[in-house]
Amino acid sequence: MRKFELLDGVVVPLDRANVDTDAIIPKQFLKSIKRSGFGPNAFDEWRYLDHGEPGMDNGKRPLNKDFVLNQPRYQGAQILLARENFGCGSSREHAPWALEDYGFRVIIAPSFADIFFNNCFKNGLLPIKLAADKVDVLFKAVEANVGYKLKVDLEKQTITTPDGSAYPFEVDAFRKHCLLNGLDDIGLTLQHVEDIKAFEAKHRAAQPWLFA
């Protein structure tokens, strides 16, 4: 996993609640057996005017000019600003894969769906929960200022606006450690092999039918 370093990135506002993972990456792209290459199809149904299928040359497809990701002022955005319950629906990790592949490193929203939230951390994406009124302030600022950027400092757990106001955010210590160091969970868990084996032996003795 890529390390999460200090970020100073352009923000794109996606002003709807309950954005689901079907919208983030439509199901036809889930047929891939790879982990990469989903970026061009992130938000496919909103982003293009035609129907997307795997294997198409996305560079030649008609763009929906009204969709916020297609507006020139938001090109190169690395921070996605969103509303309540972002990432609800299916558990597909293809959603964070697509967002990461598109170039996002941070998603800011008042709330996230649990599975999506978890999946982000496994892919070098930082989801930040910020109170709805603060998110609202950011939406207004982004829309009012072309090229609006935010600085995200994971180490210090702050978001800083161009005018210098800082918003602190919470992040789980373990997840922060993994993101900052680009650590993969499996390696970490396997440091506890003895604990797992001991638990398993005890569990097997108590409920042998689980191991029949």
Binding site: R35, G89, S90, S91, R92, E93, H94, P96, I115, N118, N119, K122, N123, D185, I186, T189, L190, I196
Partner: peptide
Amino acid sequence: GDSHTSTHGAFAALAHGIGTSEVEHVMAT
């Protein structure tokens, strides 16, 4: 690796959907 894994909770089981990285994690550990 499917959000509707919650279904199995009907059996007084603790059942939840996980992402693909977690699928790999459970396979390995």
